[in-house]
Design a protein around this nucleic acid. Structure first.
Lengths: 137, 137
DNA sequence: GAATAATGATACGTATAATGTATCATATAA
DNA sequence: TTATATGATACATTATACGTATCATTATTC
């Protein structure tokens, strides 16, 4: 399950992907448009900036823009940044030492295969993909 | 991420799937063999029984066995019983009313598609599938 | 029939994390 | 110089995952 934080991050980045040129959008408007709690978004965008997903302009008429092409930001990227565990399918696939069983155990291998497939799919959807969908949102 | 409860349930059912005939296995041994905390397993098996996954025999030499064929118990079945949220990929896919956005929003539809694919895969792996793997566990 | 070994049912405790809010500092445009 | 923006943290509140504990009931075996 996506956390709200990851969900909000995806929606915020999607909106920024829709901006033209090097326009910026303020966090205030971003929060309003995407129905995200303002203060939550503020904290969240700091992390996005820290990790090179967005750039910010301070002061009046400041705001945010993507720091890299929308094609270069996948759902997997965002989720792994915001909440790595939500794309891990079992504890042992995050922390090997957390499980006393064999690393080759049937359950682990089976779950790992499914996880790999999901990661592949999540990596295939980028902010450009989402932004290209005729908007209904 | 699978919860420990779901993980344990899968491992317990897998072990029971390996029993021959209508043999039973006690919770004590099941816990030992599959490295599951005994009391946790006790509570967990009640739920499995309540929902028709296992049958129990009480008294001395009692224990548990599968209540239906191993082929008829998929990973999806078990996870959905133990922890439905862990196979839901977003809050809005569990509780429509939790989100004020359009049901047709891009993010929701995209995540829903990926969720459907994962469910398909989880439904394709049964306790019989797992039990058939040459054991290394 | 008493002792033993098993499950049935439920209640309790604790630590972590998700979600959201608040505060103060800093930068920039008009 | 004022207003509007972000930078950086700290705080509060639930919810829940995980594990433990307790008492009752059933069936086998000697």
């Amino acid at each position: 399950m996506l956390t709200r934080e990851a969900d909000y991050a995806i929606r915020a980045l999607l909106r920024l992907a829709q901006l033209e040129g090097d326009r910026v959008l303020s966090t205030t408007r971003l929060a309003e448009e995407m129905l995200i709690p303002y203060r939550f978004l503020r904290r969240l965008t700091l992390k996005l900036e820290e990790h090179g997903f967005v750039e910010s302009a301070r002061g009046k008429h400041g705001g945010l823009r993507l720091a890299r092409p929308a094609e270069a930001i996948s759902l997997l990227d965002v989720i792994q940044l915001m909440h790595p565990e939500s794309v891990a399918f079992n504890q042992c696939l995050v922390d090997e030492a957390s499980c006393a069983r064999s690393p080759e155990c049937t359950v682990r291998r089976t779950i790992a295969d499914i996880q790999a497939e999901v990661h592949h799919q999540l990596a295939g959807v980028t902010m450009a993909t989402l932004a290209a969908v005729p908007k209904e949102e």
